Amino acid sequence: MKRPLIEINGTPASVETLSAALPNYGHFTSMQVRDGGVRGLVLHLLRLQQATRLLFGSELDPAQVLVWLQQALRHAGSEAIAASSVRVNVFAAQFNRERPGAPQPVEVMITVGAPWLAPAQSIRVQAQAYRRDLPQVKHVGTFGLFRQRQLALQAGYDDALFVDELGRISEGSVWNVGFWDGARVIWPQAEMLDGVSQQLLKVALNAAGVEQQAREVRLADLGGMQAAFSCNSTGVGTAIVAIDQWRFVEDGALTARLQAAYESVAVDVLL
């Protein structure tokens, strides 16, 4: 795509309507559209509903969001329907900074842009002592997480992995993390965003008969892990070959197994 398409409540965005989204308070979901479909559509819509209730004290109509999403893709054209990255933002045009807790009606901004692709190779990540505000919500307060990623890049790594104040590994900058101990997939337990792709992968692995365990994981536990991987909407199974001084094998068979499980998830047809 030559440039992103942006619509708010089903109409083309203008300077005036975009300016209403400037207060840094809101939430969003991101999805990858391929051949007119997306995986986990119901989970994306549920995420938007739940976060709207929590942040704004109001209700969001998922059926209307779906109509606007389909319309935006049609307006973006066949190239976008074939492959694009879609972000759905929810914000309050009349956001009251003096009384942010008052129930507020919300607006829906949909951006359709070029598709995001998973890293072509394995990554090395740096552990960072950091915890996002309200980590269970995919909100627009992203300064901190991108600052942590920037620091990791400056230190020679590819990305940042967050460790909370209790010493528990939680999540990556914009991805979830999983481990392989040689017998099962280990999902770290901590306050984090339960990503849509992570949710789908868990269900798919269960259907494939792959043993999984959710438990607290600390840096000191990494010596017992054989492999590590990242997981988000751009793809699952990207090998993490290093977390600080800990090294992991790049297990091609594990990567293929994770990707096959994820790809077994049914695609929800949008258009």
Rank of each mutant, 00 (worst) to 15 (best):
S84V: 06
E59Q: 11
A63E: 14
P100N: 09
L54C: 08
V65D: 01
P4H: 04
Q64F: 00
S84P: 02
E107F: 02
P135S: 12
V88P: 02
F28I: 05
T11A: 15
A72Q: 02
R147M: 11
F56M: 09
F146I: 05
L73S: 03
V33R: 09
A118M: 08
Q50C: 07
W68N: 09
R74E: 12
L69P: 04
S58K: 05
M31W: 07
T29M: 02
V15M: 08
V108K: 04
V88A: 02
A63K: 11
G77E: 03
R3G: 00
H75D: 10
G26I: 06
G37A: 14
V140P: 00
H75S: 14
S85V: 00
P12E: 06
L117A: 11
D61A: 10
S122Y: 01
P100K: 10
S122E: 14
Y130R: 11
L48V: 08
G26D: 07
A93D: 09
A80T: 03
N24L: 14
A127Q: 09
V137E: 00
V88R: 01
V140A: 04
P119R: 06
V106N: 04
R97K: 07
N96V: 04
G141K: 13
Q71Y: 02
T142L: 15
Q126N: 05
R97F: 01
S122M: 04
G10I: 04
Y130Q: 11
R34F: 07
Y130L: 09
L46K: 15
Q104C: 14
F95M: 04
L66D: 03
S84N: 01
S14A: 10
A114F: 00
L5G: 01
V38L: 10
Q148S: 13
T29V: 11
G101Q: 13
A76S: 13
I6L: 14
M109H: 03
D35W: 00
K138Y: 00
V106D: 03
F28P: 02
T11I: 14
L48T: 06
M31G: 08
G141F: 09
A20L: 15
R87C: 03
L22N: 10
R74K: 12
L18V: 08
Q49H: 10
D61R: 08
I110P: 03
G10C: 09
S58Y: 02
G36F: 04
G141M: 12
L66C: 04
N96L: 09
D133C: 12
D133F: 13
Q136T: 14
E79V: 13
V42A: 15
N96M: 04
R132E: 14
N9F: 02
E79P: 00
P115N: 08
P23L: 09
G57L: 08
S85P: 00
L46Q: 15
M31Q: 12
P12D: 07
L48S: 05
L48D: 03
H139K: 07
T111Q: 11
P105W: 03
L18S: 11
V86E: 05
L41I: 10
V42T: 15
L18T: 08
T111V: 14
F95H: 13
R87A: 01
R97Y: 00
E7T: 15
A129W: 09
L66N: 02
V86D: 05
Q71E: 11
S122A: 15
P4L: 07
Y25L: 12
Q104S: 15
F56T: 05
T142P: 00
L73M: 06
A82H: 11
L55T: 05
T111M: 13
A51V: 05
A127H: 08
